[in-house]
């Protein structure tokens, strides 16, 4: 299959130049290369610009409500482990209003792949500060500088127990596609924090701003350097930070219920 086979006839309503286009292309190409049957592909989103992605990729998709993609996706995956279930949402959606569910997913290690479209603003409501916006920054639509500290998605994911944690840049489509392919093969709660500039409202963290700071990790950081790598802000490392194999939630539930785990790898 080709990425093209997953296209829909919906008009894409993101702003020209939006980082979301890179994510869309990378995701389409990744699922095409892994050859997922569109009927078995389930993208679940919350609310916000990023959440529109469910209309742009052919699948058996669900557009839920603000912050609640993870609970609905969890129910789908537990009900039918044969499906490839991907959660897509912004930093506001997944780490603001949906933060409790984000943490709970890490604790459960359900086999869901979470893609954070991380642009540090609430775009659809026109530019309020998102959870990952650095402190004291004033973006164009904000009345005052940000009085909150920025949340670090990688550290939160690590503390919550995610078994696959990575960071990517939305405009680097090929490395992002490869990373998504890797995440699709992982079994357990996985997260990619995708730096995705909002061309309209985030006039600080632009494409140029990121390109001056990002660099790729040479290899998986070892235990002693892991937290330090996750904490880096002046230079921003990309790639896989953490990856382990652990029993998943549905395996545990099945063993409690005395059922044989199907053990289906979902691609």
């Amino acid at each position: 299959m080709k990425g093209f086979d997953y296209k829909t006839d919906a008009w894409i309503q993101w702003c020209p130049g939006c980082g979301n286009y890179g994510i869309l292309t990378a995701l389409r190409n990744a699922i095409a290369e892994v050859e997922i049957d569109p009927k078995k592909l389930v993208i679940v989103s919350g609310i916000g610009c990023s959440s529109r992605i469910v209309y742009y990729i052919r699948g058996s998709n669900v557009h839920t409500i603000h912050g609640r993609a993870i609970p609905v996706a969890s129910g789908i995956k537990l009900a039918n482990p044969d499906l490839m279930v991907i959660v897509a949402g912004g930093d506001g959606d997944l780490l603001g209003i949906g933060a409790g569910h984000f943490v709970a997913l890490g604790r459960r290690n359900i086999d869901l792949k979470v893609l954070i479209h991380d642009n540090a603003v609430y775009g659809l409501t026109k530019g309020q500060a998102g959870p990952t916006l650095p402190s004291a920054v004033k973006l164009r639509a904000m009345n005052y500088p940000n009085s909150h500290e920025a949340l670090n998605p990688l550290l939160l994911a690590f503390a919550s127990g995610y078994t696959f944690i990575a960071r990517a840049f939305a405009y680097h489509v090929k490395p992002l596609k490869d990373l998504i392919k890797e995440v699709l093969m992982h079994r357990g709660s996985a997260v990619i924090d995708i730096l995705q500039p909002c061309v309209t409202y985030n006039d600080l963290m632009t494409r140029d701003w990121f390109e001056k700071r990002i660099y790729y990790l040479d290899s998986l950081p070892n235990e002693s350097e892991l937290l330090q790598k996750m904490k880096e802000v002046d230079r921003i490392p990309l790639g896989v930070f953490y990856k382990i194999e652990k029993e998943t939630f549905d395996q545990k539930i099945n063993s409690i219920m005395g059922r044989k785990n199907k053990g289906v790898r979902n691609v």
Partner: peptide
């Protein structure tokens, strides 16, 4: 919220 969200997900998947 999650309790009903998961149940809705399971229902969507046919349970």
């Amino acid at each position: 919220i999650s309790a009903i969200g998961m149940a809705l997900g399971a229902s969507l998947a046919g349970l």
